[in-house]
Structures are given as structure tokens and as C-alpha cells.
């Protein structure tokens, strides 16, 4: 087994081999990641200049309402979305500051 530090040449080669053995799984997960990025981007864009509830966000993005809530809960956990005031039986959400070190949605490298 080569040295397992990903930084050196032997490590890089070993990682390439590992990627080849998990090819199908990585392809499926990568397409999920791409879809997640699109959907998160749509949610953030809709919140760029307004505070919205989950059903309003679903209407604005065309995404299923439960899927929107799943993203909102997740982005809230990582500080990217904040809970605002209540509107009827729903809460409104607005953009927060992403934590330091969080990668931008556009960055991607599967190699």
C-alpha cells in the first residue's frame, strides 16, 4: 500500500485507482451534488432580496415544499440562512453569513 497522504504522487495514484473502483457510486453521488447545488442556489437567489416562508420559497423556486424545508433546515444549521419573524403558521427565512471556510457553491473538483 502506498503512502496514504493524498498530496504525494503515490497517494494521488492510489486515489485515482480507488476512484476507478467506486466509479458508479461516485457518478451517482456527483450528479446528486450538482442537483443540490442548483437547488441551493435557487433558494439563496430567491432569498437575496426578500424574506420568505417555506411554501413561498417552493413557489418561487418550483421545488417541492418538503425539499425546500430540508435545505432551509440544513442551511440554517450551517449559518447560511436565518429564521425571521412568523407569518401566520409559518416562519420567514432570510440569508445569513456563511461560516468562514465554507466553500462557495461554484467550486467543484471531483479529481
Amino acid at each position: 500500500m502506498p503512502d496514504k497522504t493524498v498530496e504525494n504522487e503515490a497517494g494521488k495514484e492510489a486515489l485515482k485507482k480507488l476512484r476507478a473502483t467506486r466509479k458508479d457510486q461516485i457518478a451517482a453521488a456527483t450528479s446528486r451534488v450538482k442537483e443540490q447545488r442548483r437547488e441551493v442556489k435557487a433558494i439563496k437567489e430567491s432569498l437575496a432580496d426578500s424574506e420568505l416562508t417555506v411554501p413561498e420559497l417552493a413557489a418561487a423556486t418550483g421545488l417541492p415544499v418538503d425539499q425546500v424545508l430540508w435545505y432551509v433546515a440544513t442551511l440554517k444549521k450551517y449559518g447560511e440562512i436565518l429564521e425571521g419573524p412568523k407569518a401566520g403558521s409559518y416562519f420567514r427565512y432570510r440569508l445569513g453569513q456563511p461560516p468562514a471556510g465554507e466553500p462557495e457553491a461554484e467550486q467543484e473538483s471531483t479529481n
Binding site: V6, E7, L15, L18, R19, R22, Q25, I26, A29, T30, R32, V33, G101, P103, E108, S109, T110
Partner: peptide, 14 residues
């Protein structure tokens, strides 16, 4: 969780 990891290498780097 290897079912979902895309082996992008970011975690090892950071």
C-alpha cells in the same frame, strides 16, 4: 459515508 462520498479530496486537504 462512502455511499455518498465523491472522493473529491477536500477533507484530506483541509
Amino acid at each position: 459515508d462512502t455511499d455518498n462520498c465523491i472522493l473529491c479530496g477536500r477533507c484530506a486537504k483541509v
